[in-house]
Nucleic acid binder design. Structure first.
Lengths: 214, 214
DNA sequence: GCCAGAATTTAGGCTCACCGAAACCCTGCT
DNA sequence: AGCAGGGTTTCGGTGAGCCTAAATTCTGGC
């Protein structure tokens, strides 16, 4: 009733992260695309997760985590993000290179090793992309944020997070020295002015990946 | 023809380590016991490994690695031992606590991360138990060694390795400050005298786990 | 040289996580 | 209201890796 294998954890994690920065529930087909599996595989796993009380699902409807499911999901996300932070902070990885490694290690590391890493890093609150690292009890501290692509011209603030979905975007932004904490003003659509007065043109893909202070 | 999953890697690793400090080939049933699986499971996997050219096996006979199999096996052993060394050297583990964690991580870590760890550690030649860490090309440097239980009284030398099979033995020896590098003289069966003149009584289990300079 | 008992293999089955194809349900458009 | 098309589920099937029970083969002791 309770074990949650690596595959199930991936489903829970993906359902969780889908609603982390926007509020619509995920559909089975969207989940299939994100996980790279066939829709029928999703149906099957959804049945198991619902039977275990980790998600709720009415046939032909969207998916939602239960409290138990959210706890399990945040535990996986916590692992993933602590590992990413560690890879960048101690192991010489760049922020566009950590995702795949963390994807695998998050299912392999013991709680003990995870806490040893957490301690070495000084209990970080965010990963290299600016995503909040859930606490061990599942608590997540997430500031209000707007997508740069949807911010109004004139908006001033700082970068909160950059989605790690597209490594090319991450490399582009790293080259432009833009990352979590960068302060800016939106001078025109896709044009930001940094604190030192330099302006940067961001691609539409980047603008759709950058979340800034509301 | 070539993938080698985690399970297959465990079979290869176990076949390899069985002949590392003694020279008789392993039998299918011994392999089953070590891996904790049924004999029939061994038969099945053996068939696959033989078909992939990683081991040789005549029906009802013992198992032996081919050159390709040995290369694959030493790669896994290399991972395992580097991870153990890292857990002890940087993550605050004791030498009796690293085995299980390494057992899992050895199948999850990427080559890149492994080399990052190797570099941080300064390219160690031995793990915390004194086992040699194979080079990336499969080369292993193993000094001639005798089991303490089989050494003649009067034998003087130093501890080369302690088998990590039995954590209780490792804890016992750690309490007695005995480990790889410890110099001693065998004063009587199960009694050793250390460099500082102190003598120690070792249990039969420990004497059967300690390998010393020949 | 034979044969009992141990080791090994075969045979048949199980679970997990996946697949493609076919059936089914729902919605939006006419 | 009816229906086409897309989303979802069902159905039958696959490969890994494991199991137990039932052959089969080998071997040591007489």
């Amino acid at each position: 009733m309770n074990h949650t294998t690596g595959a199930a954890e991936d489903y829970l994690k993906t359902i969780y992260t889908h609603t982390e920065w926007q509020s619509d529930l995920i559909s089975p087909s969207a989940l299939a695309v994100r996980l790279g599996v066939a829709p029928s595989s999703v149906t099957e796993m959804v049945k198991k997760l619902a039977a275990s009380g980790l998600i709720t699902h009415v046939p032909y409807g969207p998916l939602a985590l239960t409290d138990a499911g959210r706890l399990r999901a945040t535990a996986v996300v916590r692992r993933h993000r602590l590992i990413e932070t560690w890879l960048v902070g101690e192991m010489g990885y760049d922020w566009d290179q950590v995702h795949d490694e963390a994807e695998i290690l998050e299912h392999a590391i013991s709680d003990r090793l995870l806490e040893a890493i957490n301690t070495r890093l000084g209990f970080p609150a965010h990963d290299p992309h600016g995503d909040p690292i859930p606490a061990a009890d599942g608590t997540v501290l997430r500031p209000p944020a707007v997508l740069l692509a949807e911010a109004t011209v004139g908006h001033a603030g700082s970068v909160l997070r950059v989605s790690d979905r597209d490594p090319a975007v991450l490399r582009e932004l790293a080259a432009d020295l833009i990352g979590p904490g960068t302060e800016f003003t939106l001078a025109a659509a896709l044009t930001i002015v940094l604190a030192d007065g330099q302006s940067r043109l961001v691609t539409p893909a980047a603008a759709a990946s950058i979340w800034v202070t509301a």
